[in-house]
C-alpha cells in the first residue's frame, strides 16, 4: 500500500520574481501541489524559519545562490547551525556553473544542484526524489 501523499512543504528562497513565478507555475500543474512559501534572500529566509513561519515536516528548501544581503552559501552556513533545520533537504537552483559554487554547496550537504533555466523534467525528478525521502522518514 502506498501511503496517501500529503503535499510537500516547499520553501523557495529566490530574489528573481520571474524565477519564483516559474516554480509556482510548475507546481500548479502538479497533481499534489506543495505548500509554497517564499523569501527574497537568505536573511529573510532565516528570519522566517526562526519565526516558525515555515513547517519543518516534509520540507524541501529550494535555494538560489546569487542573492542580495545574504547569499545562498551564507544561508546554508546559518541553516546548518540551527538545531531544527540542520538536516532539512536543500536543492540549489542557480545559473552558476562554477565548480567552486557546487563544491561549497555540497559541503553544506545539499541534495541537489539544478542549473537554471530550470527544465520541467529535471525539476520534477528532483521533487520526486525528495518526496520519496520524506515518505521513508514517515514509514512507521
Amino acid at each position: 500500500m502506498i501511503p496517501a501523499t500529503k503535499p510537500l512543504n516547499v520553501f523557495l528562497i529566490e530574489d528573481d520574481e520571474i524565477d519564483v513565478e516559474n516554480i509556482r507555475r510548475a507546481f500548479r500543474e502538479s497533481a499534489t501541489p506543495p505548500n509554497l512559501s517564499t523569501a527574497k534572500d537568505g536573511q529573510q529566509a532565516i528570519e522566517m524559519l526562526e519565526a516558525g513561519e515555515v513547517p519543518r515536516d516534509r520540507l524541501v528548501i529550494l535555494l538560489d545562490l546569487n542573492m542580495p544581503r545574504m547569499n545562498g552559501i551564507e544561508f546554508l552556513g546559518e541553516l546548518r547551525k540551527t538545531e531544527r533545520f540542520a538536516r532539512s533537504p536543500v536543492v540549489v537552483l542557480t545559473t552558476s556553473d562554477a565548480e567552486q559554487d557546487k563544491l561549497r554547496a555540497y559541503q553544506h550537504n545539499v541534495v541537489g544542484y539544478i542549473l537554471k533555466p530550470v527544465t520541467y523534467p529535471s525539476f520534477v525528478s528532483h521533487m520526486k526524489t525528495i518526496e520519496a525521502y520524506w515518505r521513508l522518514q514517515e514509514f512507521p
Binding site: D16, D19, E21, T95
Partner: peptide, 13 residues
C-alpha cells in the same frame, strides 16, 4: 541571457 529568459517566460505565460 538572464533578463531575456525572464521576458521569454513572461510572454509565454
Amino acid at each position: 541571457r538572464a533578463p531575456l529568459r525572464g521576458i521569454a517566460n513572461l510572454a509565454g505565460w
